[in-house]
Nucleic acid binder design. Structure first.
Length: 211
DNA sequence: GCGACAG
DNA sequence: ATCTTGTCGC
């Protein structure tokens, strides 16, 4: 049995274990992870920020060898390892994790954000920059007759698709993602910074939304 | 069978 | 995701 078939079975088995209710008392700190690739290496970055002030509390990076090719629907196989190794380097705790990829907005309702959320047993939110599957209806994405994601539109037709990863409701996830988008930005600040750090770029300061 | 397909 | 400089435009 191929590694892919096993992964699909794992997704089908774990999908029903995702908690879609809010199970957090307050959201003070938010973490984000992203992985970029170069020369056969996976560079992962994790950033922890204060959800209210967008102050960076800690950021780390880790480099590992790429072990699996990218296959739509099975991105977890390629990115979970690198992401976990970066998260393991953090000394600072966090209330919610934002993931660059989908949660329940997935063919089997179990994307990378769900996988990380179930493994860590923590609240996670999936944020994708393009639509993997499903149909857009107003500001929602319908899949199998269910609303699995919220669409947040920015300037120039740019959109992000927010879905549940684990231990959070879609409404809370969507509102959180919105509140973390700084003025003039497309992505929630934690993810924007994680993306830059993973590419070893120097992130420039930005103007918080409430100013 | 054909096309679509997170990063 | 990555390969890649300058360039058009708000």
């Amino acid at each position: 049995m191929s590694r892919y078939t096993e992964a699909v079975k794992l997704q089908r088995r774990l999908a029903p274990t995702v908690v879609t209710r809010d199970s957090l008392k307050s959201i003070r700190t938010v973490c984000a992870v992203d992985v970029s690739y170069r020369e056969g290496l996976a560079n992962a970055a994790a950033v922890v920020m204060d959800a209210a002030t967008l102050e960076v509390l800690e950021h780390v990076t880790s480099t590992t060898k790429v072990k699996v090719p990218y296959v739509p629907g099975l991105m977890m196989l390629r990115e979970a390892g690198p992401a976990m190794s970066a998260l393991g380097l953090l000394k600072t705790g966090f209330d919610v994790l934002l993931v660059d990829g989908n949660g329940q907005l997935h063919p089997r309702r179990f994307g990378l954000a769900c996988y990380l959320g179930v493994m860590l047993d923590k609240p996670t939110v999936g944020v994708a920059k393009s639509l993997l599957c499903g149909t857009e209806k107003k500001d929602s994405v319908i899949l199998g007759g269910r609303t699995v994601a919220k669409v947040i539109s920015g300037r120039e037709g740019r959109k992000i698709f927010v879905s549940i990863g684990n231990k959070i409701s879609l409404g809370t996830a969507s509102r959180l993602a919105s509140s973390l988008i700084a003025r003039g930005q497309w992505l929630p600040e934690p993810l924007r910074l994680a993306d830059m750090y993973s590419k070893k770029r120097a992130p420039k300061r930005v103007v918080p939304k409430n100013l």
